[in-house]
C-alpha cells in the first residue's frame, strides 16, 4: 500500500530541469490497480495497487529517469505512458491529447511518436522472426514504405552488420539483441523513447556500450527519453531529471544530479547508500556500509 508522501518529497512539482515549452507528457493523479485471482469463495481478493496518484511532467528533449525497486510500480507507469496498460483512474495527456480510456485502434498517432525498449531483449523479440522482420514490424504495422532501405540504415545506426537482417535473435549476444530492439524502436522515427531497464540484464562492459549508443541516438535524433531503472547511478549518468518511486508513489523528484548527490527522502538515501561502487569499496566500505541508511530512518544526515 502507498505511504503518505513525506514533506521532503517534491512529487507534484516539476524538477528544476530546464523547461522547453509545453510538456510532452502531463500525468495527473494516475492510478492503476490490478484484479487479483480470487482465493476465497466468500469475498473477492482486494485489488493490487501498482501505482496511485502519480503526477509528473515530461518536457520535450528531456531525459527523464524513473528509479525504483521491484514492486515500486515503475514498469506499470511506463506501460501507462506507452498506452499499453489502461489506468484505473487519472489522466495521461500526450501533447495535450488524453490517452486514458482510448482503445488500441485510437492510439495510432501515439504508436508513431512513442516507442518502447524492454529490459530483456530475448523476451521482447519474437524468437520466430528474423531481424529484418523484427525491425520492420513497426513500419509494416503503420504502412510505411521503404522498409529494406530503412532496416539497413537502422542496422548501421545501432552498429550491427547489414547481414544481420537475415538472422534470428537467438544468434546474437545480449548486447547485440538490445541493439536490435533499439533499432526496431527507432524504425518509425519516434520523438519519444521509453526504455524499461534496458541495461539491467547486461554485463557492465556491454552496459557501457548500450548506454553510449542510447546517448548518441538520443542526441542525433533529438529524442525525449523516459528511462526506467532500479539503479540510481545509471539514471544519474543518463538522465537530467529523475523521479524516485516507492510502493506506487513518487517519493522524491528533481534534477538527477541533485537527487543522487543530496537525496532528501530517507528512501532515496537508502537507495543511494545501497549501491556498491568501486570508489567506496576502495575507501574501505564493507557490506555493512551499504546498509548505511535504513529505509525507515527519518533523521536527516
Amino acid at each position: 500500500m502507498v505511504e503518505p508522501t513525506p514533506s521532503t518529497a517534491t512529487a507534484a512539482q516539476p524538477g528544476p530541469a530546464p523547461h522547453r515549452g509545453e510538456p510532452i507528457y502531463t500525468v495527473r493523479g494516475l492510478t492503476c490497480r490490478f484484479r487479483q485471482p480470487r482465493v476465497s469463495l466468500r469475498r473477492p481478493t482486494p485489488p493490487l495497487t501498482a501505482i496511485e496518484g502519480i503526477d509528473l511532467d515530461v518536457h520535450a528533449g528531456q531525459r527523464f529517469g524513473v528509479v525504483g525497486e521491484s514492486g515500486s510500480g515503475k514498469s506499470t507507469l511506463l506501460r501507462c505512458l506507452a498506452a499499453l496498460q489502461a489506468p484505473t483512474s487519472g489522466s495521461i495527456r500526450f501533447r495535450g491529447q488524453e490517452l486514458a480510456g482510448r482503445r488500441d485502434r485510437e492510439l495510432k498517432f501515439l504508436r508513431r511518436e512513442v516507442q518502447l525498449v524492454f529490459q530483456d531483449p530475448m523476451a521482447s523479440l519474437d524468437p520466430r522472426m528474423r531481424v529484418r522482420d523484427l525491425i520492420a514490424e513497426p513500419l509494416v504495422a503503420q504502412r510505411m514504405g521503404g522498409v529494406d532501405e530503412r532496416v539497413g540504415e537502422l542496422l548501421d545506426a545501432v552498429g550491427l552488420a547489414r547481414q544481420s537482417a537475415t538472422r534470428y535473435p537467438h544468434q546474437f549476444s545480449g548486447g547485440q539483441r538490445q541493439r536490435i530492439a533499439i533499432a526496431r524502436a527507432l524504425a518509425v522515427r519516434p520523438t519519444v523513447l521509453l526504455a524499461d531497464e534496458p541495461v539491467s540484464a547486461l554485463d557492465v562492459s556491454v552496459r557501457a556500450q548500450i548506454l553510449n549508443l542510447l546517448a548518441e541516438l538520443v542526441e542525433r535524433y533529438d529524442l525525449t527519453l523516459v528511462f526506467v531503472s532500479h539503479d540510481l547511478a545509471v539514471v544519474r549518468h543518463v538522465c537530467d531529471a529523475v523521479a524516485v518511486m516507492r510502493a506506487g508513489a513518487v517519493v522524491e523528484s528533481g534534477s538527477a544530479e541533485r537527487v543522487s548527490s543530496a537525496p532528501q527522502h530517507p528512501y532515496t538515501r537508502a537507495l543511494v547508500a545501497a549501491v556498491p561502487t568501486l570508489r567506496r569499496a576502495l575507501a574501505g566500505a564493507d557490506p555493512a556500509a551499504l546498509l548505511g541508511a535504513a529505509p525507515t530512518d527519518e533523521e536527516p544526515t
Binding site: 504508436r111 516507442q115 518502447l116 504495422a141
Partner: peptide, 17 residues
C-alpha cells in the same frame, strides 16, 4: 503474456496481425 506481443502492440500491430 510475452513481452514480444507487448512490443508488437506498441509497434502498432492490430489483433489480427
Amino acid at each position: 503474456a510475452s513481452d514480444y506481443v507487448l512490443a508488437a502492440r506498441s509497434a502498432g500491430r492490430g489483433p489480427l496481425a
